[in-house]
Design a protein around this nucleic acid. Structure first.
Lengths: 120, 120
DNA sequence: ACAAGAGGTCTATCTCGATAAACCAGATAG
DNA sequence: CTATCTGGTTTATCGAGATAGACCTCTTGT
């Protein structure tokens, strides 16, 4: 399976790691209990799976990410555009904005992002 | 469950309906066999589920959609932005474009869509 | 010496999405 | 009048994501 692909629970889990890495595995267990209500074995089960998939690494009880947040998000965004919008970003944007408006500030920000991607 | 939410198989199925409605249910069975390789019972099972959910309607063997494509796409786009991008469209756009560029034409189109949403 | 904690694995359960086989009632063509 | 077609329903299987209980080994503080 693609190391970029993260299911719902996996994504929440990996977010905690991105925000705290490098993190000791026992600390991660505590963090997951606090933030997600997970038992120890759940944390280790998911951790092991994601390590096998190549998304994370756990070496000498230190957990770090191989796949970075930007990569996972990029993958996720492209997947949804592909699957539900024919691969068309304009179609996505149209659907997202559908009807409701946005502020001038946000519009400026969006246009800046587009400019940035155009001049390459 | 939300009538807007469509799982993968359901989405493909509903796409056929959007493209062909109103459609006779027996014809839909044939269409699903041809396009998705589904058996008759599969088609009826999914159809019934989506009718119960309020996404589709099947009256006197005529199938029509209640939820329209734009609505489903809007829901889908907002879900992904919410769940994976903190509800931030700029964050989504940044991730999607991440690194690679876009053509001038596409950039213009995107900016036009943004303009459209701004002036309301 | 021994209890407790760190760091894990193995196996299992539950739910649910995807798919289908089997069956059924009413209309209709030959 | 009976074989076929239309228009379904009921029930089941299978895989996978989400979650966890039980157990295990090694180290360390008392």
């Amino acid at each position: 399976m693609e190391p970029y692909k993260l299911f719902d629970a996996e994504y929440k889990f990996t977010c905690l790691i991105w925000d705290n890495e490098p993190i000791n595995s026992t600390d991660l267990v505590k963090l997951c209990l606090a933030e997600l209500g997970w038992k120890k074995s759940t944390t280790y089960t998911v951790l092991r799976k994601l390590c096998k998939r190549g998304s994370l690494r756990n070496e000498e009880a230190t957990v770090t990410s191989i796949v970075k947040k930007e990569d996972a998000q990029k993958y996720e965004s492209q997947m949804v555009v592909e699957k539900s919008f024919n691969g068309s970003l304009p179609q996505f944007l149209t659907a997202f904005l559908g009807g409701k408006g946005i502020s001038n500030e946000e519009a400026e920000e969006l246009k800046r992002i587009i400019e940035e991607a155009t001049k390459s």
